[in-house]
Amino acid sequence: MAQARVLVIAGSDSGGGAGIQADIKTITALGGYAATAITALTAQNTEGVQGIHPVPPEFVASQMEAVLQDIGADVLKTGMLHDAAVIEVVSEQIRRYAADIPLVVDPVMVSQSGSRLLRQSALTALRERLLPQALLMTPNVPEAETFLDRRITTVSHMQAAARRLQREFGCSILLKGGHLPAPELVDVLVTPDGEQLFEGEWLTTKHNHGTGCTLASAIAVSVGQGLPLEVAVARARAYVRKALETAPGLGRGCGPVNHGHTVKDTLSDFLTPSPPSPNDD
């Protein structure tokens, strides 16, 4: 499979479980090449976000321009954009240098620990500037409720919400059901051409930090590798499921998943002595 170039525009997670760190690990583990434009630095760990230090919007633009003018990209993925000024420059850089490149938007609004990561004033910019440029948006239920200003409590509510978001923004919508109390885990994909439900069994674990970032990046790299969107979603869900099942159990709080589960352990290749060469004395 092709080594897709993925430019990720998102915030950094000092704990390594989410954000840019999760994006890079995911893209690499699935055979892509990750480049980045960092929008904010966070001080955080498995117990929560202790601080956010925004990167100036003009420097976010400089990072994007530097990558797109040299390395290029097969797909773009956004995560934490934090405020309206950053969204504006990201949208403008996409218009100037990447208008024909697929864009996956993870509308990161609130961390799993409850910290707000997107200012309220940025919602308008997200709606009006960035989402019309997107191929796909991947909201969870609370994020979809924020967009629509309505409660979502059933799978049928999810389907109706995803259809409405798709009509409003024009892009495909993957509405994730991880926050919904239901017998099965259900995600809803609505595209301009139709609708598909992805179902699975619940997995009980507290080590699920960064799953939203991870899923969106897994979809993005798969799209960049040429997979149809439905196949990219299925592949990404399978990747995240295995990452959850094999989570390393780090930290006192909501720990990271195992992003590297696709990578073969070759340590023994380095520790096993090589046989002597016929030319050795």
Rank of each mutant, 00 (worst) to 15 (best):
V104I: 15
D187K: 06
L180C: 04
Q133K: 05
R163M: 04
T138E: 09
M80T: 04
I87T: 07
Q133F: 04
E195N: 11
D74W: 02
D193E: 15
H179N: 09
V105I: 04
G177Q: 00
L76I: 03
L180F: 03
V90F: 14
G170R: 05
L203A: 05
V105R: 10
A122H: 12
A73R: 08
H179I: 01
E143D: 08
Q166M: 06
L81I: 02
P183Y: 12
M109L: 01
G200F: 09
G170V: 05
S91I: 00
K176C: 03
A162N: 02
H157S: 07
L123I: 03
L148E: 09
A162P: 05
E195P: 00
R129I: 01
P183R: 08
Q196G: 06
A99E: 12
R150K: 13
L126C: 00
D70F: 14
L68N: 11
S121W: 09
T191F: 12
K176V: 00
T138G: 05
T124L: 13
L189Q: 11
I152T: 02
S156R: 14
T205W: 12
V190N: 10
G177F: 01
G79R: 03
D74H: 08
P102W: 12
V155W: 11
A73N: 08
L81H: 13
G177C: 00
P142D: 12
I94Y: 10
R164D: 12
P142S: 09
V105L: 08
A134K: 06
Q93H: 11
L118G: 05
M158I: 01
G170D: 04
H157K: 02
D193I: 00
P183E: 12
D74A: 01
A122K: 02
E128Q: 15
L203D: 10
P107I: 02
D100Q: 14
L76W: 10
A98I: 00
L123C: 07
Q69I: 01
T154G: 02
L175T: 01
I94P: 07
P132G: 00
R129V: 00
P139R: 04
T146S: 15
